[in-house]
Amino acid sequence: MNRQDLIHQLQIYQAFNEQEETDRKVMLELLETTEDIFYRTNLLAHFSASAWVLNKAHTHVLMAFHNIYQNYAWLGGHADGEEDLLSVALREVQEESGIHTVKPIKEDIFSLETIEVNGHEKKGKYVPSHLHLNVTYLLEADDTESLHIKQDENSAVNWFPIDQVVDVVHEPWMVERIYKKLNQKLKEVNYES
């Protein structure tokens, strides 16, 4: 997949709510006007990919305890030049959790979010506040595989019952605007392959 494929996917994406429709328009505009939008050298905004990872029974979600934010969060990361965001999501799940058996439930975009990232230190260097233009994919992984942390990014990786995810996350905006939305989409959208 390349930039044009992502533009097409965003053009045909059926927004779930007003937040997604607004973010979809912003992403399309930036894809058309900003050459370095897939690189974190763009200090204002860049693409990232996340994964809402379900177990095979679709009863639990895989989350990692993020070192910078000291909070449980979905898995994912920066595009870092990669325009195939599904590949980014798959790779990040494997790197951040140690799970090897992970696949898309559908290859379509599951959710869209523009996420504000506060300024922070990473590897001894200051990273200014910026936006993640985040594309989320619905993935499935084998919950019998051993989990492993990625020490420079997280300090725990665990499966949580879907309805308890909002209880382990302490960032109100993420709970209200993202995780509750993802769970609502699981109930309302036909996501089976």
Score class of each variant (00 low, 15 high):
H100I: 03
I99Q: 10
A49R: 05
L30P: 06
T59H: 08
Q19Y: 08
R3W: 08
L112Y: 07
D23G: 05
S129E: 15
L10P: 01
R91C: 13
P161C: 11
L30N: 12
E192D: 15
H66L: 01
N71A: 13
T136P: 02
N2M: 11
T101G: 06
I162N: 10
T59K: 03
G98C: 07
N2F: 09
I178N: 11
G76P: 02
K125F: 13
E21W: 07
Y191V: 13
F160C: 02
L30I: 12
K25P: 09
V88G: 07
I99R: 09
G98T: 01
T136A: 06
I105Q: 02
G76M: 05
E20Q: 13
L182K: 13
Q19G: 06
H66M: 04
Y39P: 04
V135G: 00
H120I: 06
F38A: 08
V53W: 07
Y39L: 15
H148K: 05
F38N: 08
D84A: 08
T34P: 04
L182F: 14
L138V: 04
Y69I: 02
N134K: 14
V168G: 05
A141P: 06
P104R: 12
V189T: 14
Y179W: 05
H60V: 12
H148P: 01
N17Q: 05
E92A: 02
Q151G: 11
L31I: 06
I149Y: 00
N17D: 15
S87H: 10
H132P: 01
G77L: 02
I178R: 14
D5C: 10
I37E: 13
K180Q: 14
V166Q: 02
H100T: 09
I149H: 01
V175T: 12
A45K: 10
K25T: 12
V189D: 08
V168A: 08
H148E: 05
K122M: 15
N2H: 12
E96L: 00
H120C: 14
W74A: 07
V127T: 07
I178Y: 07
E140Q: 06
A51D: 04
E140T: 03
H100F: 03
E153C: 00
A156P: 01
A156K: 08
D5G: 14
E113D: 05
N134D: 11
F47G: 10
I68M: 00
T33C: 10
P161L: 11
T34K: 14
E96P: 03
V189N: 05
A73K: 11
L112C: 08
V175R: 10
I12A: 11
I99G: 12
G77S: 03
E176Q: 01
E32T: 06
